[in-house]
Nucleic acid binder design. Structure first.
Length: 215
DNA sequence: GACCAGGCACATC
DNA sequence: GATGTGCATGGT
């Protein structure tokens, strides 16, 4: 299975090349982006991020000072803006209380401790936590998203209804625990998903081959 | 004008 | 423990 998963990775990688994820200037921006992209198209998130940057709020000090009501209109393009403004402030408060606002403090924790703490933040679930762990804190954990489940269940590697933890274990049991590999693997999955898996008609040209029948 | 997007929390059974 | 629902914008 390890060889199969690496073969699939190589097919995607040969098609898209290195993707240099996560698209952000700083680890802090990765975290804000991870919250903003919850169930939302990245093109909309980009607008929200640009607004935050233009208002000079894309850092700990800025977001600590900003009020929720100030944040909401700025992140409006990313949808769920009231919820996400709360979530961002929740994360900032957590960082303040547990690490005096220093992201390096969180980064120094073990993978297990950091993950537990992130999951306790209201508004941070498994995917957001793991995205932060992998892309902002450089911890070796495999990020599962809707594309991961869709692609690998359609190709027969996973049951269609597999839950988050099951899918994550599947990849982590069969792949070397390597930050760079996990980083690039998830990025390749998202690109493949975006470009070839939005509908069944889009399979044409997919590096993983064309699927027939229901998916 | 539906339908969907790089989820999550909460209510209800 | 499983299933349903609210949150909301912008692109296809």
């Amino acid at each position: 299975m390890k060889d199969k998963l690496l073969t699939i990775f190589n097919k995607m990688h040969n098609h898209f090349g290195d993707l240099h994820w996560w698209p952000a200037d700083t680890p802090f921006e990765v975290i804000i982006g991870a919250i903003l992209t919850q169930n939302t198209a990245w093109t909309n998130v980009e607008k929200a991020i640009a607004n935050l940057k233009n208002s000079r709020l894309m850092d700990y000090a800025g977001l600590k000072t900003a009020k929720e009501e100030e944040l909401s209109p700025l992140i409006r393009p990313a949808g769920y803006y009231n919820q996400k403004a709360k979530k961002i402030k929740n994360f900032i408060r957590f960082l303040e209380q547990d690490y005096t606002g220093d992201l390096d403090g969180l980064k120094k924790e073990s993978l297990g401790v950091a993950r537990e703490k992130l999951l306790k933040v209201h508004g941070v679930g498994p995917e957001t936590a793991d995205s932060i762990l992998l892309y902002a804190l450089e911890k070796p954990i495999f990020v599962v998203d809707a594309y991961t489940k869709r692609i690998f269940s359609r190709h027969g590697f996973l049951p269609q209804m597999a839950d988050y933890h099951f899918v994550q274990d599947f990849f982590m049991e069969h792949l070397p625990q390597d930050v760079k590999l996990f980083n690039e693997y998830h990025a390749q999955i998202v690109y493949t998903g975006k470009n070839f898996c939005r509908s069944k008609q889009m399979c044409e040209g997919c590096p993983l081959g064309i699927l027939k029948g229901e998916g």
